[in-house]
Protein backbone atom coordinates (compact mmCIF):
# COMPACT_ATOMS: atom_id res chain seq x y z
CA UNK A 1 0.00 0.00 0.00
CA UNK A 2 2.67 2.45 1.09
CA UNK A 3 4.64 1.98 -2.12
CA UNK A 4 1.53 2.17 -4.27
CA UNK A 5 0.57 5.47 -2.63
CA UNK A 6 3.95 6.92 -3.57
CA UNK A 7 3.98 5.57 -7.12
CA UNK A 8 0.43 6.59 -7.92
CA UNK A 9 0.93 10.09 -6.50
CA UNK A 10 4.07 10.46 -8.65
CA UNK A 11 2.33 9.20 -11.78
CA UNK A 12 -0.69 11.46 -11.17
CA UNK A 13 1.67 14.37 -10.53
CA UNK A 14 3.36 13.76 -13.87
CA UNK A 15 -0.04 13.52 -15.54
CA UNK A 16 -1.04 16.84 -13.96
CA UNK A 17 2.13 18.52 -15.24
CA UNK A 18 1.45 17.07 -18.68
CA UNK A 19 -2.09 18.40 -18.60
CA UNK A 20 -0.82 21.86 -17.61
CA UNK A 21 1.61 21.85 -20.49
CA UNK A 22 -1.09 20.68 -22.89
CA UNK A 23 -3.60 23.30 -21.63
CA UNK A 24 -1.07 26.04 -22.26
CA UNK A 25 -1.54 25.52 -26.01
CA UNK A 26 -4.45 27.93 -25.64
CA UNK A 27 -4.17 31.33 -23.94
CA UNK A 28 -4.08 30.79 -20.21
CA UNK A 29 -3.69 34.41 -19.24
CA UNK A 30 -6.26 37.03 -18.38
CA UNK A 31 -7.78 38.73 -21.38
CA UNK A 32 -8.72 42.30 -20.39
CA UNK A 33 -12.46 42.93 -20.14
CA UNK A 34 -13.24 39.30 -20.89
CA UNK A 35 -11.74 37.13 -18.22
CA UNK A 36 -9.58 34.03 -18.53
CA UNK A 37 -8.50 32.60 -21.91
CA UNK A 38 -9.59 29.24 -23.28
CA UNK A 39 -6.75 27.32 -21.69
CA UNK A 40 -6.98 28.92 -18.26
CA UNK A 41 -9.75 26.70 -16.86
CA UNK A 42 -7.96 23.37 -17.48
CA UNK A 43 -4.54 24.92 -16.79
CA UNK A 44 -5.31 26.07 -13.28
CA UNK A 45 -7.29 22.96 -12.48
CA UNK A 46 -4.34 20.81 -13.56
CA UNK A 47 -2.15 23.02 -11.40
CA UNK A 48 -4.55 22.21 -8.58
CA UNK A 49 -4.15 18.49 -9.33
CA UNK A 50 -0.39 18.88 -9.19
CA UNK A 51 -0.63 20.75 -5.89
CA UNK A 52 -2.76 17.92 -4.44
CA UNK A 53 -0.18 15.35 -5.56
CA UNK A 54 2.60 17.37 -3.93
CA UNK A 55 0.47 17.61 -0.77
CA UNK A 56 0.01 13.82 -0.79
CA UNK A 57 3.75 13.27 -1.38
CA UNK A 58 4.84 15.63 1.39
CA UNK A 59 2.46 13.96 3.80
CA UNK A 60 3.71 10.54 2.67
CA UNK A 61 7.28 11.51 3.55
CA UNK A 62 6.66 13.46 6.74
CA UNK A 63 3.83 11.89 8.66
CA UNK A 64 2.32 8.84 6.99
CA UNK A 65 -1.22 7.93 8.05
CA UNK A 66 -3.92 5.70 6.57
CA UNK A 67 -2.93 3.93 3.37
CA UNK A 68 0.44 5.73 3.33
CA UNK A 69 1.38 3.95 6.57
CA UNK A 70 -0.05 0.58 5.52
CA UNK A 71 2.74 -1.85 4.68
CA UNK A 72 0.36 -4.59 3.52
CA UNK A 73 0.18 -5.60 -0.15
CA UNK A 74 -1.60 -3.27 -2.58
CA UNK A 75 -3.76 -6.03 -4.03
CA UNK A 76 -3.97 -9.16 -1.84
CA UNK A 77 -1.93 -11.99 -3.31
CA UNK A 78 -4.90 -14.38 -3.57
CA UNK A 79 -6.88 -11.91 -5.65
CA UNK A 80 -4.02 -10.45 -7.69
CA UNK A 81 -3.86 -13.09 -10.43
CA UNK A 82 -7.59 -13.04 -10.91
CA UNK A 83 -7.81 -9.25 -11.17
CA UNK A 84 -4.94 -9.18 -13.68
CA UNK A 85 -6.35 -12.03 -15.79
CA UNK A 86 -9.81 -10.42 -15.89
CA UNK A 87 -8.39 -7.02 -16.84
CA UNK A 88 -6.25 -8.56 -19.58
CA UNK A 89 -9.18 -10.60 -20.90
CA UNK A 90 -11.30 -7.47 -21.04
CA UNK A 91 -8.57 -5.61 -22.95
CA UNK A 92 -8.24 -8.49 -25.42
CA UNK A 93 -12.01 -8.57 -25.86
CA UNK A 94 -12.15 -4.84 -26.63
CA UNK A 95 -9.14 -5.17 -28.94
CA UNK A 96 -10.72 -8.05 -30.84
CA UNK A 97 -13.85 -5.96 -31.47
CA UNK A 98 -11.77 -3.95 -33.96
CA UNK A 99 -10.98 -7.13 -35.89
CA UNK A 100 -13.80 -9.66 -35.52
CA UNK A 101 -16.46 -7.29 -34.18
CA UNK A 102 -18.71 -7.47 -31.16
CA UNK A 103 -20.36 -10.67 -32.30
CA UNK A 104 -17.07 -12.53 -32.63
CA UNK A 105 -15.40 -11.10 -29.58
CA UNK A 106 -18.24 -11.35 -27.04
CA UNK A 107 -18.80 -15.13 -27.36
CA UNK A 108 -15.05 -15.76 -27.10
CA UNK A 109 -14.89 -13.62 -23.96
CA UNK A 110 -17.86 -15.45 -22.44
CA UNK A 111 -16.37 -18.87 -23.19
CA UNK A 112 -13.08 -17.82 -21.63
CA UNK A 113 -14.73 -16.30 -18.57
CA UNK A 114 -17.42 -18.91 -17.86
CA UNK A 115 -15.41 -21.98 -18.79
CA UNK A 116 -11.89 -20.81 -17.97
CA UNK A 117 -12.42 -18.71 -14.85
CA UNK A 118 -15.82 -19.84 -13.62
CA UNK A 119 -15.36 -23.57 -14.32
CA UNK A 120 -18.97 -23.79 -15.42
CA UNK A 121 -20.07 -26.72 -17.57
CA UNK A 122 -20.16 -26.57 -21.35
CA UNK A 123 -23.99 -26.45 -21.60
CA UNK A 124 -24.12 -23.34 -19.38
CA UNK A 125 -21.15 -21.73 -21.14
CA UNK A 126 -22.57 -22.50 -24.56
CA UNK A 127 -26.01 -21.16 -23.70
CA UNK A 128 -24.61 -17.81 -22.58
CA UNK A 129 -22.13 -17.57 -25.44
CA UNK A 130 -24.93 -18.06 -27.98
CA UNK A 131 -27.77 -16.19 -26.27
CA UNK A 132 -25.88 -13.01 -25.30
CA UNK A 133 -24.94 -11.92 -28.84
CA UNK A 134 -28.42 -12.76 -30.14
CA UNK A 135 -30.11 -10.69 -27.43
CA UNK A 136 -27.58 -7.91 -27.99
CA UNK A 137 -28.28 -7.88 -31.72
CA UNK A 138 -32.03 -7.68 -31.35
CA UNK A 139 -31.94 -5.12 -28.57
CA UNK A 140 -29.30 -2.75 -29.90
CA UNK A 141 -29.41 -3.16 -33.66
CA UNK A 142 -33.02 -4.10 -34.34
CA UNK A 143 -34.83 -2.08 -31.66
CA UNK A 144 -32.46 0.77 -30.77
CA UNK A 145 -30.97 1.10 -34.28
CA UNK A 146 -27.48 1.38 -32.81
CA UNK A 147 -25.07 -0.36 -35.16
CA UNK A 148 -22.36 -2.05 -33.15
CA UNK A 149 -18.86 -2.45 -34.59
CA UNK A 150 -18.34 -5.65 -36.59
CA UNK A 151 -14.79 -5.35 -37.92
CA UNK A 152 -14.11 -7.70 -40.82
CA UNK A 153 -17.29 -9.68 -40.15
CA UNK A 154 -19.46 -6.82 -41.45
CA UNK A 155 -20.38 -8.52 -44.80
CA UNK A 156 -21.81 -11.51 -42.93
CA UNK A 157 -24.46 -9.22 -41.50
CA UNK A 158 -25.80 -7.78 -44.77
CA UNK A 159 -28.61 -10.37 -45.02
CA UNK A 160 -29.56 -9.73 -41.37
CA UNK A 161 -29.69 -5.98 -42.04
CA UNK A 162 -32.10 -6.63 -44.91
CA UNK A 163 -34.41 -8.53 -42.62
CA UNK A 164 -34.33 -6.55 -39.42
CA UNK A 165 -33.22 -2.99 -40.06
Amino acid sequence: MRQAELILALVMGLLSAGLMWKSAELPIGWIPDEGPGGGAFPFWLSAGMLACCIWILVRWARRPTGVAADTGPYIPREARTQVIVVTAALAVMIGLIHIIGVYGSVPLFLVFYLRGLGRHGWPMTGAFAVATPIVTFFFFEAILKITLPKGYTEPLFYPLYDWFL
Binding site: I94, I97, F109, L110, Y113, L114, G118, M124, F128, T136
Partner: peptide, 16 residues
Protein backbone atom coordinates in the same frame (compact mmCIF):
# COMPACT_ATOMS: atom_id res chain seq x y z
CA UNK B 1 -25.92 -16.83 -8.81
CA UNK B 2 -22.17 -17.21 -9.25
CA UNK B 3 -20.30 -13.98 -9.80
CA UNK B 4 -18.42 -15.61 -12.68
CA UNK B 5 -21.65 -15.42 -14.69
CA UNK B 6 -22.70 -11.95 -13.59
CA UNK B 7 -19.32 -10.28 -14.05
CA UNK B 8 -18.79 -11.04 -17.77
CA UNK B 9 -22.40 -10.05 -18.58
CA UNK B 10 -21.90 -6.72 -16.80
CA UNK B 11 -18.58 -6.20 -18.60
CA UNK B 12 -20.30 -6.73 -21.94
CA UNK B 13 -23.08 -4.30 -20.99
CA UNK B 14 -20.40 -1.76 -20.07
CA UNK B 15 -18.57 -2.14 -23.37
CA UNK B 16 -21.74 -1.85 -25.43
Amino acid sequence: LPFTILAPIIFILCVV
